[in-house]
Simulated scan of single mutants.
Amino acid sequence: MKIAIAGGSGFVGMALIQELRKENHEIYILTRNPENKKPITGVKYVKWLDQSASPENELAGIDAFINLSGESLNSGRWTNKRKRIIVESRVETTREMTRILSMLTKKPAVVINASAIGYYGTSEKEVFTEKSETIEEDFLSRTVQLWEKEASRAKAYCGRLVFARFGVILGKSAGALPMMVTPYQLFAGGTIGTGRQWLSWIHVKDVARALLFCVNHEAINGPVNFSAPSPQQMKYFGKTIGTVLHRPHWFPVPPFLLKTMLGEMSTLVLEGQKVIPDVLQHHEFTFAYPDLKAALHDLLK
């Protein structure tokens, strides 16, 4: 298949490229600076988000478009300016994706737009599936709602539209895990906040595999939770890191300290939601890493 990826140079994008190359797909990466990219066999870089660019001319006949673009939530303290960048980067790139799709004579069979489980809001008691609605509105849930609303315009230009609602993605050198592991490596790891908050996690390899799974399965449409089937509370998550690294778990990090250090961004680790991947399980997707301890062994050993 011919598959276009916006945001293909990022953490998830690189894992996805590895998965797609195994099956010899034609890969088109949309990027602002194609001239600065390292050549990869089977990958063509296409310039976009530039007045001189016409990416639609190079994407004729694509079978799938996967949009992973957006400013990282971990890119800095959530000042009003940073929050505006986070929202606008998602809305603007998604709007450009829809424009490109509208220009294509042959429409792709599927469009997958990145999203997040932040859509649901936070809770220590609720269990969320793809059928759940937002239970409270905070910055993350409002951002995701705006993002998905903009992406929904792409329905007119594709066979299927999937919202990939990512949980906390665990990777060896990127994502949230390295920051969470550092205190344990310094023998100073411990429970973050109350420890009761839920962490709906997923191994980055399973993210890449599930994206391709959604491309290949015509019955999958709409929201899809990208999270492992075994969400864990933060206290257990920390203890498991300590066990895998053979480090103690004894220095608690009080909520007020994180709120002082990170401001509103502290909600990423102090609050959470228990999310179940009903759609992937219903369609019999097999997780390579359904168990947290096995996932951490793979990433940290």
Rank of each mutant, 00 (worst) to 15 (best):
Y157L: 03
G263V: 02
L30M: 05
H297V: 12
V253K: 06
F213P: 02
A188K: 13
Q232F: 06
A156C: 00
T94Q: 10
N113V: 05
E148I: 06
E126G: 00
N33C: 04
T260Q: 01
K47Q: 11
P34T: 09
P178L: 08
I40P: 03
E130A: 09
E19W: 04
L268C: 02
I5E: 05
L186C: 09
K205Q: 15
P248I: 10
T41H: 13
R142L: 09
S123Q: 07
H246S: 12
E124V: 06
I29H: 11
F163W: 12
F213Y: 09
S123V: 07
A188G: 08
A156K: 14
D63L: 05
E148D: 12
P39H: 10
P254V: 13
D206F: 03
E19V: 01
A116K: 00
E58M: 03
L292M: 06
S89N: 11
N67G: 00
S123E: 12
T134Y: 07
V181H: 04
P277F: 11
T122V: 15
S52M: 02
A288F: 03
R95H: 14
M179K: 14
E126S: 13
G167Y: 01
S54C: 06
V181F: 07
N80A: 13
N74P: 00
P277E: 11
M97V: 12
M261E: 01
A114T: 01
M1P: 09
L299R: 14
P277Y: 12
G167H: 09
F163M: 15
A60W: 00
T267N: 04
V162H: 01
L59P: 08
E136T: 03
R84E: 15
A154H: 09
K301W: 03
C158F: 00
S173H: 15
V269H: 13
L257V: 15
V43L: 09
A294R: 08
G8D: 05
F285D: 10
C158T: 05
S102W: 03
A188P: 03
P248N: 12
T93I: 13
M103V: 02
G190W: 13
L73S: 03
Y289L: 06
L212R: 15
G171L: 04
V204P: 02
V207H: 02
L296N: 08
W250D: 07
